[in-house]
Design a protein around this nucleic acid. Structure first.
Lengths: 340, 340
DNA sequence: CTGTTAGCGCGTTCAC
DNA sequence: GTGAACGCGCTAACAG
């Protein structure tokens, strides 16, 4: 079933069919309706490769989501929601979505770039990825429009989307303050990662505003994984003046802090309050359930799509400074680990 | 950069370039090498839409992974690993991957089918999806090759891939038996779902083999979510003769059982042992860590790709009975919730 | 408002 | 072993 057959059956030319199906103005309403009806009746669907070939655009976006295994267990739960949101938002904007990989390519460094070229991709969305990915750097350095969520790359046609990490962290501190806590420590992520650094900044700013002391010992760098949070919390609880509350920049570390508290014979939230970040699935499953700063995956996904579309519509020559950062608000979910 | 330009620069015709790049036999080794080198040098990449158009095949597989929101929080953590495995396996087999959605289509019932037609997809892989999806049924009923992981659909060119749910459940029971438990109860998933039913079968068979009594009260149907596991466990612990071990057919329910035990003042694993299924992220994060039957996501993904390729290579006329079921083994992860 | 025609980039005949 | 010509399904440009 192709456009020629459809034309034959409806007694018009292929050009008219094409115009009718693509909602061009120059077709009479009557013929348009007739053709559309016939098309659905016959189960006609346009051949995208052919359209792509002639229109020189594919309406297709590439998606890169983690080329390495390092991120395993880290932002994972998070990614799925993101992926879902991106998929939905793109499809609502009538874009198709292609998953990209580096594997199986002769020239791994240019793999993504080649994929974009091969498939005529209009742009690429990048979900959390190791920042040292050479293949990704090559992409960012090109003129391919890229929107990254929580990624640290920059290039000529690049936008970054992320949660308002600083504000989220500040909200966590504020929440603990309102519960009466005055000694609030933090466990950070690896500080070379932007989200980790931003969350620390938010923590510091909130403490400053609230006139809370932040001794150096109250800031411990972790790696976002459980064990680091547990170790950090253990250290914090052993201090001469231990904190009464811990803000961990990631849920896994926060859960580690819960374990450390239990081991120290402390009751959460009575003796120690804990707040995490991300709202991974496990946050609602542990006991006490974890109070956490939830990232809005749906909003992040939609923002990424919006950002990319902005880039696509923008004049390629112009720097896209105006839209160079999309910040999505977070939401504090108060659960048992902080509230009494 | 296209094949014509490449031909001009290498002093041969486009036909020769095409033959060289596609590893056809009728080209001399020398020219092939020369052309290949020039191609990488110039960053040439074939235009897939054009290739697809003329070859009438796209080397592209569609992926459907959850059209509804119902599954939220259920198999989620699981899906991501699957997705990753499928992506890798497909790309190693030189297939491209396209994410499909129903959204934004006029004829939602035929949305997937249309997508397959539009993009010339060779086949589709379906990850866990609500079984009542009409759109999916339409796809399964067609002649499009489909491989489903844990899905309940069947059709003329359909393969199902799943974990060996029965064996996994049996292994859990066996493990508990070896620890000395003789009163082992189970919390099942919704029994209309094949995985839930299979896990129950495995449980029953193992109990029978080990001559363990299974009073009706020891089999409680849950819904895979936390609360149902908690409620079921509470009921079980209130029995006149409560079990000393619970096998829950899903990790969330198992974690619910841990909560119930804690509320009843029981110590896990001393007073009650608990085993789950799936190995979601949270299983390793809760305390005590959850013993669970892990599904091998990587193997499942690879099996799905293998199954689909089998279907693609098979004679379309022939029923594909020989390969109609791919069963992937599970692995018991013993953690603190069972081992003393 | 509609039809005719050219050509998007490539793989594949058929000649040589 | 190589080249010239054709056509995949569709849209765009132009003609009517």
């Amino acid at each position: 079933m192709n456009i020629r057959e459809l034309a034959r059956r409806s007694g018009v030319s292929t050009a008219t069919v094409s115009r009718a199906l693509n909602d061009r103005a120059e077709v009479s309403e009557a013929t348009r309706a007739r053709i559309r009806r016939l098309a659905t009746e016959l189960g006609y669907a346009p051949n995208e490769p052919a359209r792509t070939l002639v229109r020189r655009r594919s309406d297709t976006i590439g998606l890169i989501w983690d080329s390495g295994q390092e991120a395993q267990g880290l932002h994972n739960p998070f990614l799925l929601g993101l992926l879902s949101a991106v998929r939905t938002a793109l499809s609502e904007a009538d874009y198709h979505l292609m998953l990209l990989t580096t594997a199986g390519d002769d020239d791994p460094d240019g793999a993504y770039l080649q994929a974009v070229q091969r498939h005529n991709l209009e742009g690429v969305i990048v979900l959390t990825t190791p920042p040292d990915d050479r293949c990704l750097r090559a992409l960012a350095a090109s003129t391919v429009p890229c929107a990254g969520i929580d990624t640290a790359f920059t290039g000529p046609r690049t936008v970054r989307v992320s949660s308002d990490n600083a504000a989220g962290a500040a909200a966590a501190v504020q929440h603990l303050y309102e519960l009466g806590h005055r000694r609030i420590a933090t466990v950070t992520g690896p500080l070379h990662l932007p989200p980790a650094a931003e969350r620390l900044t938010g923590y510091r700013r909130a403490c400053e505003r609230l006139k809370l002391p932040v001794p150096d010992a109250y800031v411990v760098e972790g790696d976002f994984f459980l064990a680091s949070g547990e170790a950090a919390a253990r250290g914090l609880l052993d201090l001469p003046e231990p904190p009464t509350a811990i803000f961990a920049a990631g849920d896994q570390m926060a859960i580690g802090a819960l374990h450390a508290a239990a081991d120290a014979g402390l009751s959460v939230p009575r003796d120690l309050a804990v707040v995490g970040f991300d709202d991974i699935d496990a946050a609602a499953l542990v006991r006490p359930a974890l109070t956490t700063v939830a990232q809005d995956q749906r909003a992040l996904g939609e923002a990424a799509v919006a950002a990319l579309r902005g880039l696509l519509d923008a004049d390629p020559g112009r720097p896209a400074d105006l839209v160079h950062a999309y910040i999505v608000p977070t939401r504090l979910l108060v659960r048992g680990s902080s509230r009494v």
